[in-house]
Design a protein around this nucleic acid. Structure first.
Lengths: 342, 342
DNA sequence: TGATAATATGCAATCGATTGCATTTATAAA
DNA sequence: TTTATAAATGCAATCGATTGCATATTATCA
């Protein structure tokens, strides 16, 4: 029934050599003659030999496994990051273990521990929203296990990071609206929670300043940035009777909420109000009108994070200085912000 | 610098007992006294002991790893399936290795091999579109490694499967349109490629039949089912001057393409033409009007696939008969198909 | 009190590959 | 021919945990 998996010892026995030689032959060690190598490879194929990475990993002390922790796997952004990581890792013969924290710090810690038990060679993490203690990560670093933070990062951990320039994203979005002739630009944000929103807000402010447009605090709406929040903010905005000619929402979801309410009130987009979101969620190209937004290049972020991990790995001998990789976002201009004739 | 990771031998030495006892104590073996167990646990904590799964896996012949192969990780459907798998697997102390085939059979085979080298305890696969040989999977089964196919499956492999009832999905969608009063229902499909489209088509036909609506071959449009294909099909449809009052697209993407063209031609949705898609892609709730579609419950599919894997694992002693789990799809009714006043 | 059965722990092999340190064999230089 | 050198391979320990089979200790019963 079970053909008893072949090992290097079986190959060795068949060829009347030792397992050491087989091992070296399979690893293309120059100390082994070409003749022997060929024989070993042949016999390996004959016996249907399948290397056992576990054994090698145990002996070598490296598993060729990378762990990833994200808040939620099935969010376009995160799954794209994972895709990027997988691409780079696989090329270098590494496998990727994925796990999710569900934004819960205890799950995050437990997950991290499980990954360590599995003896991953490194961990890539996007920190959960509620994570406010970082000892578990710092102890990782002490143990000398490569750690890379991406997107949701913190400077409380002395390790490499990969982020996008949210400030620039906010700036580009706002500048674009200004170039379209908008002067009263509303901003939807969520300053309390995540760092990234602060940066986008900073970009918004700076773009206004650079273009001599006075800042108006009453045009800034804070919320949880989901679709319903976007709706509510827009309703409040309309009720306030304030004049405005554009909305820059720091989240695509809130932007769609705004789009809905504006349309319900027969306010034409982009003619009456231009609209820009943030993240380039897949759905943004399917709204009506298609939503102008800012791409964060998640696949590229995943690739960068993986590369960052390998850099740490390679430099393991010398002292490694944590790197911060900052990716440039890109404004994706669609009809929600494109005034005619410009 | 590196505090030399503690092993069970270190714990043993400190307590003047043997590693066997430590191992048993850590595994809560009843042969070990409570006193010793307590001492071992305490010392484990003191020494900051971290179990080495690799060693255990090597010895026990099981790695607590599950491999998943999907065509593309960053597609909402697949990443949701992965999420479901991860949830179930983690609860049972298994980790999940993800990898993508990119719809390429050679990559698929290479990936499968890599997973086997990593000694995964089982593999969950959604087969690539271009995969037309299955030896690599059948040899898996011969080796006694649990294999579960999900969504994109084939009967050429004698193993457990998890699918949704696409026939029912097609039926529900069509029946719904009929109940809305539609009589000339267009269908977008892709019969050549994947099995699932044939089933949806079959559901469409059956619903027509059950409601005494004559089938009209010229209302069936075949394409690759992407957004542009949906556009093209709709343009052809309009150019053909045929009468129709609904479109059931077996893909949400093609449905959005149809929506765009219809709107461009000032055809009101749903009044003039009702529209139904398939898959409940995240963007379907953000289109204008929101798209009626069929949910495939991807997270549940992932959970079912994982459970299916564990069933095979548990029954490893006896003869196992492959199970086919069929999930029920659900029609998600939104405004694109809801005629007023009904 | 001696025999028997529990209870608790130890011994040593094992999982499969890797690798530092020999050893053997072939080759080249003296 | 002898010796030094290189090339090819072998030996045996090792990575860390598990487990079948003892052994030692204690409790129980007749």
């Amino acid at each position: 029934m079970k053909p008893k998996k072949a090992t290097i010892h079986d190959i060795a026995k068949e060829l009347n050599i030792t397992a050491s030689t087989v091992s070296r032959a399979l690893n293309n060690n120059p100390r082994i003659s070409e003749v022997t190598k060929k024989a070993v490879l042949g016999m390996a194929k004959d016996l249907n030999y399948q290397p056992n990475n576990l054994a090698a990993a145990l002996r070598k002390g490296k598993s060729q496994l990378i762990g990833i922790i994200v808040p939620t796997i099935n969010r376009s952004f995160f799954s794209s990051v994972i895709r990027g990581v997988e691409e780079v890792a696989n090329k270098l013969n590494y496998r990727v273990i994925v796990s999710q924290s569900n934004e819960d710090i205890d799950t995050e810690i437990a997950t991290l521990n499980a990954l360590l038990n599995a003896r991953v060679d490194g961990v890539l993490v996007s920190i959960g929203k509620n994570t406010n203690r970082f000892e578990h990560y710092n102890s990782l670093i002490e143990k000398g296990i490569p750690l890379v933070l991406f997107d949701r990062t913190t400077n409380e951990i002395g390790t490499s990071q990969v982020v996008i320039d949210d400030y620039l994203g906010g700036y580009l979005a706002t500048e674009h609206l200004i170039k379209q002739g908008c002067k009263k630009i509303v901003h939807f944000t969520n300053l309390k929670q995540v760092n990234i929103y602060k940066e986008r807000y900073r970009g918004y402010l700076e773009a206004l300043k650079d273009n001599n447009i006075p800042f108006n605090q009453s045009l800034v709406y804070e919320s949880n940035m989901q679709l319903v929040d976007g709706r509510k903010s827009t309703e409040k905005l309309l009720a306030s009777k304030q004049e405005f000619d554009a909305i820059f929402s720091a989240s695509d979801y809130a932007a769609v909420g705004a789009m809905q309410v504006l349309k319900e009130n027969d306010i034409n987009i982009p003619r009456d109000v231009a609209l820009v979101g943030f993240s380039n969620e897949p759905f943004t190209s399917f709204t009506d009108p298609p939503l102008t937004t800012v791409s964060q290049f998640p696949i590229e972020m995943g690739q960068a994070a993986a590369e960052s991990f390998f850099e740490i790995l390679d430099s393991k001998k010398k002292k490694f200085i944590p790197q911060k990789t900052v990716l440039q976002p890109e404004l994706i201009i669609r009809n929600s912000s494109l005034k005619e004739g410009r």
